[in-house]
Design a protein around this nucleic acid. Sequence first.
DNA 1: GTATAAAATTTAACAGTGTAAAGTTTCCTC
DNA 2: GAGGAAACTTTACACTGTTAAATTTTATAC
Lengths: 198, 198
Amino acid sequence: MGILERRERLRKQVRTDILKTARDIAREEGWQAVSIRKIAEVIEYSPPILYEYFDNKDKLLETIRNEGFTYLHEELQKIKTLYRSPEKLFIEFAQIQWRFMLEQTEVFQVMFNIEGALCQSKQAYQIEFAMLNNHPIWEDLVQIRQRSAETVSKTFYEWWCLTYGFLMVSIVTQPRQNLPSLEPIFMESVRRFLRGLV
Amino acid sequence: MGILERRERLRKQVRTDILKTARDIAREEGWQAVSIRKIAEVIEYSPPILYEYFDNKDKLLETIRNEGFTYLHEELQKIKTLYRSPEKLFIEFAQIQWRFMLEQTEVFQVMFNIEGALCQSKQAYQIEFAMLNNHPIWEDLVQIRQRSAETVSKTFYEWWCLTYGFLMVSIVTQPRQNLPSLEPIFMESVRRFLRGLV
DNA sequence: GTATAAAATTTAACAGTGTAAAGTTTCCTC
DNA sequence: GAGGAAACTTTACACTGTTAAATTTTATAC
């Protein structure tokens, strides 16, 4: 009896449709324009159906946020096998972060609660910083800085703030067409930071 | 006839009351909880009265944002007379930025559209970056870096992103009670940046 | 002091929001 | 085909920003 499986497939499809629609509306009109009713209209269901898939709007955004962080972790894992030099790895990852912000701006906005995106749950950040010990980029940081674990932990936070902070400021304060011209400046900041570490 | 003047005084008072109330609610419950009706209730007027003072909610937030930037500019002007060394000046200003974020968190949130605060008008940023040429901190940056105007302009943007970016990331991702412990890390980032400039 | 004009303020309304409860339809099993 | 469960919709509530119309308060002229 493939009925249950078919139902399960459909459920999964609707779920991803909801997430995609939310991102689409956010991309077109900004997060302040994303409403349960609008999503429902696009996926051609009545609004309460969304609550069969997500407890509330906040959990929906939390899912998008988590998917964003997951994507970046995966990208980092990929390039970890390509670059042996820690410096190269950091620089490459900074480029990935920049591209991510440009191409999936609306996801980035949810990840850091900017520009009208608001996800009250801060669980993702706790996980992010709790991962410190087995964070994909962590061991490389140890390689560059031959210091105590605490020092490296601090440096990791500095790195986090430098990269994501630069992206946040840029996306919030700069008009879209300006962003590409700012990438070299971002990369120079990253390189300067890495140089300052030795 | 002091009638008109009394009216004008009262108008000014109500206006500042509106701004203060908005900040108060934001401080207590977050910006997503700030509504025209709630502000009206606190200042004991009916909601439409607020539109006699601000065109719309966005302009109200814009005012709070502008006051935030103005405050920081003034603080910078003050310390400019105290410190002759550019490095010292930058470090001191970074400390002022940190204090400002801690003590006027809700204003900082509006300034950078984070955590539910959303002011669509981006005029303040345009002004901020247009001021580049006569920005209070600008001339000191030239002193440290003996380079072309373009290079210094880039470095100014890097500085902006480093400081405000660090604050943004910290305020969004960290629980309140963690923030004080992060100030030294912030200051170290700032010092490392300045060291990297020479 | 009262009538009149102007200014100040409120009430009512519209179209939108997230979300819960109740009602309805569709589907699957026996 | 009947019974029951699953899927889905309708309705409702308490909010939101904002506008137009109605009302009250105030200041001036007689």
